Amino acid sequence: MKKKQLQVVVTGGPGGGKTTALDLFRRELGHKIAVVPEAATVLFSGGITRSEDEQVLKLVQKTIFQLQKNVEEIHKAQFPDRLLVCDRGSLDGLAYWPGSESEFFSEVNSTFEDEIARYDAVIFFESAGASGHDISSNNPVRNESSQQAAQLDKKLQKVWSRHPHFYFVGSSESFIRKIMFGIMTIENVINQYQRG
């Protein structure tokens, strides 16, 4: 019987340090992991512009949802012997969805249970905005204010904390300490699943 490929989500509000941690982690363990890029960044950097129109928001979130899952499947097929570490996951769209949770799942033709089961663990990087810090980023498609980042962080935390293997990396005065703690958390999760 083939061993199940492990899949971990690294998520959290904007300006949490996820992408920085993943870049460093890829350099350390590039041969053991495959980092799945954030679907929203792929979409927005490809020419789709942000909109406040509810119909457009819903279409964008449905597209991100499907793109996220498809990109994960591509990485599974390309790197069958590596742990998949996803920069965000399919449930992130719930925090951005302008309607109800039940409407979201109806529109994407899935369930919360099916989506949460896709991932073996969730590592949540709290946004610096949650503690009133600057969320400046080198990601050109990120445009949230610190206040918006804090609100999204709360919504995302509410969604992902329902996962049975939820790990929290809190905001810190020292970004470097936070990133180091986050990387250690990712490493511990990987080691735990490799032993199991």
Score class of each variant (00 low, 15 high):
residue 1 M to W: 08
residue 1 M to G: 09
residue 4 K to E: 15
residue 7 Q to S: 11
residue 9 V to M: 08
residue 9 V to P: 01
residue 11 T to C: 09
residue 14 P to Q: 00
residue 14 P to D: 01
residue 16 G to Y: 03
residue 16 G to I: 02
residue 18 K to A: 06
residue 18 K to N: 04
residue 19 T to V: 05
residue 21 A to L: 14
residue 25 F to P: 01
residue 26 R to G: 11
residue 26 R to F: 10
residue 27 R to W: 04
residue 29 L to Q: 13
residue 32 K to D: 07
residue 33 I to C: 10
residue 34 A to T: 12
residue 36 V to C: 10
residue 36 V to H: 02
residue 37 P to I: 02
residue 37 P to Y: 04
residue 38 E to A: 10
residue 40 A to V: 14
residue 41 T to A: 03
residue 42 V to D: 05
residue 45 S to W: 00
residue 45 S to H: 05
residue 49 T to Y: 06
residue 49 T to Q: 12
residue 52 E to G: 10
residue 55 Q to T: 11
residue 55 Q to I: 12
residue 57 L to W: 09
residue 58 K to M: 15
residue 58 K to V: 07
residue 59 L to P: 05
residue 60 V to A: 09
residue 60 V to R: 09
residue 61 Q to D: 06
residue 65 F to M: 11
residue 70 N to H: 13
residue 70 N to P: 07
residue 77 A to T: 12
residue 78 Q to I: 13
residue 80 P to H: 11
residue 81 D to A: 15
residue 82 R to V: 08
residue 86 C to M: 04
residue 86 C to L: 07
residue 86 C to G: 07
residue 90 S to D: 02
residue 93 G to F: 00
residue 96 Y to F: 15
residue 97 W to N: 01
residue 101 E to M: 14
residue 103 E to T: 03
residue 107 E to F: 11
residue 108 V to H: 08
residue 108 V to E: 05
residue 108 V to P: 02
residue 109 N to L: 15
residue 109 N to I: 08
residue 111 T to D: 10
residue 111 T to A: 10
residue 115 E to G: 00
residue 115 E to R: 03
residue 119 Y to C: 05
residue 120 D to Q: 09
residue 123 I to H: 02
residue 123 I to C: 01
residue 124 F to N: 00
residue 124 F to M: 08
residue 124 F to Y: 09
residue 125 F to W: 04
residue 127 S to Y: 00
residue 128 A to D: 01
residue 132 G to R: 12
residue 135 I to R: 01
residue 135 I to K: 03
residue 136 S to P: 06
residue 137 S to V: 04
residue 144 E to R: 03
residue 145 S to H: 09
residue 145 S to L: 12
residue 146 S to L: 01
residue 146 S to Y: 00
residue 147 Q to I: 11
residue 150 A to W: 00
residue 151 Q to T: 08
residue 151 Q to I: 13
residue 155 K to T: 04
residue 155 K to H: 10
residue 156 L to A: 07
residue 156 L to N: 00
residue 157 Q to E: 10
residue 158 K to S: 07
residue 158 K to C: 06
residue 162 R to Q: 14
residue 163 H to M: 11
residue 163 H to W: 14
residue 165 H to C: 08
residue 166 F to N: 03
residue 167 Y to E: 09
residue 168 F to S: 05
residue 169 V to A: 02
residue 169 V to G: 02
residue 174 S to K: 11
residue 176 I to L: 12
residue 177 R to M: 14
residue 178 K to L: 11
residue 180 M to I: 11
residue 183 I to V: 14
residue 188 N to D: 13
residue 189 V to S: 01
residue 190 I to M: 11
residue 192 Q to D: 15
residue 193 Y to N: 15
residue 194 Q to G: 04
residue 196 G to N: 15
